Amino acid sequence: MSIQTSRRALLAAAALAAPAIWGRDAVAQIRRGDELTVGIWGGAQERITRQFCATPLERQHGVKINYVLGGTPERRARAYAERGRPSFDLLYLNIFESRQAVKDGVTMASSANVPNFANLYDIAKIGGYAVAFNPVTIVYDRRKVAAPMTSWRDFWRDDLKGKVIWPTYPGAQGTSALLMAAKVWGGSESNIDPAFTNIARLRPFAAIQGSQDQLYGMFDQDVGAASVEFGSFTRKYAETRNPNIVIADPTEGQAIATNVACITTGTRNQALAEAFVNLHLSPECQAAYAEEIYYSPTIKNVSFAPELAAKLILGEAAVNKLVDFNWDLVIANQPRWSSRFTREIAG
């Protein structure tokens, strides 16, 4: 489907796509008056899912969709505290939190109960239903580097000395930066020493950044030349505020990051939650995300105009190039690595 299709047509198609009964027992069916509680980020995430998921379901089934907006840590903590008796029916987590939540029995694994499950890339079926690829990569100011950055090793080039804005750890950006540093310097999740040794060689940093907004402010103020950040958000920043910023495609690959829809274990509204996820995985909703904030689709059955397609992760080859990690090891080591980062890198 092309993104040129009108928004009105997309919404109508989404409404028609809302599933009714998929052959499951009556207890699991959607009933008029049901209420679904969804924990999600605000902004575009809320706005797009309201248009393509919540509104069609409310109109077709006479249900109510309640949103709880906020950050991932708060959602995750609440879901764990309420394990087995959830107030969330559906919550959105990041890649490693979602996989751990399934193992801990807080949320359910993905399944074919959601029809669009069949269209997901295999890696998007782990830990729930990945609804967007939002990989972490190198971002830099083209005016402040001697040559394009094409490798994670480029952070250690002489022309970047004192110009690197390193991301704090833990956090998605800092985790990706740490793990990719390990990878390119001969280490891994099970051998993190090369990462710490070589990141320490980058000091003095231009700054340590703890958020996208903080990094973009630093770029605006010419604080440094390069950092590690979500490519999609940075592309939007570059196109609206700072055309000198480049989103790199390193030869070693971009670090995988996904937003994952997770249905809670014990929800009384499983069928409604599955219907919501199914609409989030529709070509219409996925196209809206790509068009507005450059999130790459996790389904295979959607197409884009060439200009937009060039800015997304599309197709098996591109998805397979994303660098995944052993998240069990990462999670197990996070407290120790966090202390070490404070002591050896940020201190």
Score class of each variant (00 low, 15 high):
D324G: 14
D328R: 15
I199D: 03
G162K: 12
N113A: 14
E291P: 08
R343A: 13
T258N: 07
D122N: 10
F196G: 06
Q100P: 01
R78C: 04
V277S: 10
V223P: 01
A238E: 00
V68A: 11
T150D: 02
D249N: 11
D213M: 13
T37D: 10
N134P: 03
N278S: 09
A118R: 14
R83H: 02
G105E: 11
D158S: 13
E284A: 10
F88S: 00
E239L: 03
P335E: 15
I123W: 10
A261S: 07
T137Q: 01
N191G: 09
I313W: 06
R143Q: 11
L16C: 05
E307D: 14
A15G: 10
A118N: 15
V277L: 10
A54P: 08
S6T: 15
V136M: 12
V131H: 08
V27H: 09
Q221H: 13
I299L: 07
A18L: 04
F325S: 06
V302A: 03
E82F: 03
D89H: 01
P250E: 11
G33P: 08
K161D: 09
I65V: 14
L91V: 08
V323G: 09
Q51E: 13
N333A: 13
I245F: 01
R85L: 05
T342I: 09
A305T: 08
E46T: 13
I313D: 01
A18Y: 05
A17I: 00
P250Q: 11
A15H: 06
D158Q: 12
K236E: 08
I247K: 10
A9I: 12
E284W: 15
R85N: 08
F205G: 00
V246M: 10
I95N: 07
Q51A: 15
E252M: 02
G127N: 09
V184N: 00
A20G: 12
S338T: 15
W41N: 15
V164T: 09
S87Y: 05
G253N: 12
F88N: 01
G231D: 03
E97H: 09
N116R: 14
A12C: 07
A181T: 12
W156G: 02
A147Q: 15
V260G: 01
R8W: 12
V38M: 02
A81G: 08
L314F: 03
Y295V: 04
A54R: 02
D141W: 00
T240S: 15
W327K: 02
A172T: 13
A172K: 06
V136S: 01
E284H: 10
Q270F: 12
I245S: 01
Y67F: 15
V277I: 15
L202G: 00
A17Y: 04
H61M: 10
Q214G: 14
A147C: 04
L215Q: 01
R268I: 06
S282Q: 15
A109S: 05
A200F: 05
F325D: 09
P170M: 02
T258D: 06
F155L: 14
I48G: 12
V139D: 06
M108K: 11
Q4L: 12
A207S: 11
V27S: 14
E35Q: 14
N320G: 07
D159L: 12
A12P: 04
R24F: 06
